[in-house]
Amino acid sequence: MKLKDLPDEELFTRGHTACAGCGAAIAVRNLMKVLGPNTMVVNPACCLLIFGATYPYLAWKVPFHHVAFENTAACATGMSRAMKVLGKDETLIMGIAGDGGTADIGIQALSGAAERNENMLYVMYDNEAYMNTGIQRSGSTPFGAWTTTTPVGKVKAGKSNFKKDMPLIMMAHNVPYVATASVGHIQDFIRKFEKAKSMKGFRYIQVFTPCPTGWRHDTAKTVEIAKLAVDTGMWTLYESENGKVTISKKPKMTPVAEYLKPQGRFRHMSEEDVKSLQDWVMKKWEADEKYAQCRQ
């Protein structure tokens, strides 16, 4: 599907209460256009829960479900099996959670559902911290980033660990589909959600969604920063379809510093730290490329 062919109807409506410039909101309203109305959604405690569903109002025009924080994949499992029982297998069950709800507290339920190859699409919108509770560090927060739990103090500043490689962990579950996407790459985004929709079994897409509030950047720069993440190699776009891994876009290897500059969360970083991050990017890209080569 081309961008022009995306339907006009919004299944995630305007009037939602996301911050101005929210990357997650861009992802959600567009992925819903691709997935269509025969979709049921389960969503844990996260920004999206609040800005998309605050009683009695909902932005969702499809069945929407929230249970707790760490169990998105387990709840999606229950919904998916129920649809099977009711003979409504064609209904797509989507679990959509943030990075905290996925990479940290939700990873057990997620791993279980993936291993059982439950029939669902699991989307992680990655804004690289616990934004709903006010910008705390998650396993998906990049090295060096300021958050309220990795504050810039007198003896320590920013996160001292590197970002957890969730897509790789998911590929290790040998599920039918794993992909990374970005709100900055429209065609790639549409194609991957289309593909996920066309398949059965467990599918995982991790979407890179900048957060102006938490990353401390100009609200107008959300998409620009998402593109920079891909250009610098901070975020690799690829997919794994039934075990075959394809790189979607080779990074230009623009210096990481270009990506860090517009974001307040990296402002305090020393040259040495920037270099550490640059080294990490080089190694990560090298590993991603090799991985793709040996999984042809």
Binding site: T13, R14, T17, G52, Y57, L58, K61, V62
Partner: peptide
């Protein structure tokens, strides 16, 4: 109220 009702919320004032 209910599904899709957030259109009632005019966020243009922000």
């Amino acid at each position: 109220v209910g599904p899709g009702s957030f259109v009632e919320n005019k966020t243009g004032t922000w």
